[in-house]
Design a binder for these strands. Sequence first.
RNA 1: GGCCCGUUCGUCUAGGGGUUAGGACAUCAGAUUUUCAUUCUGGUAACAGGGGUUCGAUUCCCCUACGGGCUACCA
Length: 513
Amino acid sequence: MKEIRVRFAPSPTGALHIGGVRTALYNYLFARQQGGTMILRIEDTDQNRYVPGAEEYIIESLKWAGIGIDEGVGVGGPHAPYRQSERKQFYRKYADQLISSGHAYYAFDTEAELEAMRERLKKAGVDHQQYSSFTRMTMRNSLTLPAAETENLIQSGAPYVIRLKVPESGEIRLHDLIRGEVVVQMSELDDKVLMKSDGMPTYHLANVVDDYLMKISHVIRGEEWLPSAPLHVLLYKSFGWEADMPQFAHLPLLLKPDGNGKLSKRDADRMGFPIFPLNWTDPNTGEKSVGFREAGYLPEALINFLAFLGWNPGTEQEIFSMEELIKTFSIERIGKAGARFDIQKATWFNEQYIRLKPVEVLVKYLNEQLTKEGIACSPEKAAKIVEVMRERVSFPKDFFQQGRYFFQAPTAFDSAVISKKWNTDAAKFFQALVAALQGTARFDVETLKVTIENVAAGLGIKAGQVMQILRVAITGSSSGPDLMMTIEIIGREETLNRLGFALSNFQIKATAS
RNA sequence: GGCCCGUUCGUCUAGGGGUUAGGACAUCAGAUUUUCAUUCUGGUAACAGGGGUUCGAUUCCCCUACGGGCUACCA
């Protein structure tokens, strides 16, 4: 059986889009499951679109996501170099081979001439306004020019491209692992540029040559490549590499959460969620984007979420570790239709993974925030906070952001609760509670519970009547984790301070009865 | 415009010629709780439309509609 080799082949034109992460993930899962090799190839054949730092960004993103690379840029391997800009001589050689075998030709047309050709066809009402078997004989190329003139032009350094000579009739058939048979008429294909005038190959040539040389067994890529897949098949045929042609799987696209179209950075910005795995600053515009990592998404959660966007195991299990995904993944179970990107579900996955984390990890999350704020905290206290908060947070930073009152006395109080619940009974209760709390032997949940109930009973009121206002006095908020636990964590001294503050600062509403 | 791909609850999807069309997120209601959240229970909610084929179609075929992608010396 043929060795399984797949590649993720991004262009370093900016930050890695989340859809690219999914493509990389599916390649990785397939490779790992089959005991194959995952390759990272950088497709930097467009010098104009090169963005410094993008390659490093891609590598770091994959690393963070847990998508391992076996071979390629950053790790090396038997088919190095893996950066297409460093493989120019290969493409040149194979393009020349195509010229000699009559499958390609030189073209000298200027941009203006190409534009004029399109205009002419458009006016004539021709469907395909392209450089093809129908038009190539009207253009300036090695098919129409005398051989001597072609030779002359090349020798004199005139700019030229190399185009594929697509047969005028016949059909191209390819079997896509996700979509089944796809048939395209040769007459629909145009004479694609293979080598650009700057000496660089286009994607089409580079991708086919490299996949062949690197012995790629499966090309798993986005659906946007489906229309050019027949062209790639034709290239394999033209080279005589049909027997070694990889299998194709074109993945459904990631769509906008609402409305129409594919997911774009604009949508993410508009709806307030990340689209890049890590923070990114565009070196050209200086624009900064927050990444999933920095927004607080755990890589395991993002991966689980992404895996389910277009694929499912067919069972009712939702939570999958990378190991489980590797075991369960299959190309056959990838869907055909585009999937809308629903950030709410991503957040749900994040919550699930946070709850799965051991306390020590959660404490680490809390400590990271505390360090930033310059707040010290004992390991015991941190552990308690984290345990009481873990069921209610969505992101690691929430432990501190939603639990600020464990460290700092609240400065803002829920005024609705104050105006509704702060009355003479409550004030009496607070006074008695302060007195009672000063003398208890212990300061724990049990003691607090008993003390609060006793104090309330002593005043002839129900504890329930004062719990809300007690919570507001302690935390500033009307909602939060178990109050007794909260008070225990905050401690005797600070609790008494906060009760005292409430006693002297909460205003009883004039109309209160 | 042309070519290619697609279409099951609001979303991600399972299913597949005869099912009460299943699950998850979201949402709603109830229970629990000192609150909110969690948790538990329950509910609302889908086969784009039209033709075939068939005893029977959401499932197979065709058409239409809608959606998406591509249509560069970009990937």
